[in-house]
Each structure stands twice: as structure tokens, then as C-alpha cells.
Computed example of a mutant assay.
Amino acid sequence: MNTAPTPDTYPLTRRADDDANESWLLLHNGDLLIAFAAIIDRGYELWITDIAVHPDYRGRGLASRLLNSVIHENSGSDIALSACAMDLQEWPKDAGGLPTEALAAWYTRHGFRSDPDENAEARMVRIA
């Protein structure tokens, strides 16, 4: 019998800063933040600034759960992001996520396409 946690095991919570047009989708295991997505409403599109999963919880579908939640909850909005790998100060630096090329391929599987501009060479967009 497989008792490994599924992506739905962890409760999804939301936070918002209406003054800054920012919101966050958060996944916790008890008191531990294990994954989050940060979104800015730019008026003409939503911009996903970050999707990150704690190194100990990667490979469980948590990033896909967060991204699918953003897409589903904003089905009438264009959604853009920069598909660049990054390291977070809060989590071990030697436990980096996907390299940029693999990250772009992952976003492509979720319906995003390359749409670079002068501000973000790795910009991708998912049109509503």
C-alpha cells in the first residue's frame, strides 16, 4: 500500500496585499512552508514572480498544483512569468530547482509559450 503524501495532502492557503496588487498561494506541512507561488496583478496580465518548492518536498507535484491553481482561479486572465532558475535564501542553496531550460519546458507543458520582451528575455505567457 502506497502511503506517500499526494499534492492534495497539504492545505492550500492564500494571502493578499491589495495595496501592492500581490497575492500568494501557500502550502504548509504543519508550521513548515513547503511551497508557494507569488503573483502580481499588473492590470493587463498576472505576473508569476515565483513558484518554489522546499528541496525536501520536490518531485511530489506541488509546483504543478500551485501553477494549476493560479491558472484555474484566473482563467480569464493572461498569465506571464520569467522562466529563469533561481535560488532562495530561505532554503539551502545547494538544493537548486530545475535549470532554466528544463523550467521553460515544464511551463510549456502547462500551456505557456515563449514571449520575450526587452525587460525579460525568458518571458513566457499563457493567453486566456
Rank of each mutant, 00 (worst) to 15 (best):
Y57Q: 08
I34N: 03
A122I: 10
R58L: 06
S69V: 00
I34Q: 02
M1H: 01
D87F: 00
D8M: 11
P5G: 01
R15D: 00
L32T: 15
G76M: 11
L33R: 03
I51V: 09
Q89E: 13
N119E: 08
A37V: 08
H72P: 00
P116M: 06
D19S: 02
I51D: 03
A102T: 06
H72K: 13
L103P: 06
V70Y: 03
A80C: 14
A102K: 14
L67R: 02
G43K: 10
S64D: 08
N2F: 11
A80R: 12
A35T: 08
A104K: 14
D19L: 09
E101L: 09
A63K: 02
A120C: 14
D18T: 13
E45A: 11
I71C: 05
L46K: 04
L98Y: 11
W47C: 07
H28L: 07
R14A: 00
I40V: 12
N74T: 08
H110K: 13
T49G: 13
S77N: 13
W91P: 03
F36Q: 04
M1K: 07
A95Y: 11
D19C: 00
E118Y: 06
D87T: 06
Y57M: 11
P116S: 10
G96N: 09
N74P: 06
L25P: 14
W106A: 04
A102S: 14
L81Y: 05
D41H: 00
N29H: 13
E73N: 10
D19W: 00
P11M: 11
I39A: 00
D17F: 06
T3K: 14
H54W: 13
N29F: 03
P116L: 08
D78F: 03
S82Y: 00
R60K: 15
E118A: 11
E90S: 15
A83G: 05
S64E: 08
N68I: 08
R14D: 01
N21I: 02
L27M: 12
N29T: 09
A80D: 04
S69T: 13
D87N: 08
D31Y: 14
P99A: 01
S114I: 04
S114V: 01
R14V: 00
Y44P: 06
I51G: 02
S77R: 15
L25I: 12
R113G: 11
N2D: 15
A128Q: 11
A83K: 01
P5Y: 11
A80W: 01
A4T: 14
N119Y: 14
R109W: 00
N119R: 12
Y107Q: 07
E45K: 09
N74Q: 05
C84D: 14
D115E: 15
D8L: 15
R113F: 11
D31A: 15
A20T: 10
M124Q: 12
R126Y: 05
N2P: 15
I51C: 02
L33F: 03
N68T: 12
R109F: 02
P7E: 04
G111P: 07
I39Y: 05
M124P: 05
N74L: 04
L81I: 07
E45I: 04
L81F: 02
A35Y: 01
F112N: 06
D18L: 13
A35L: 05
T108V: 07
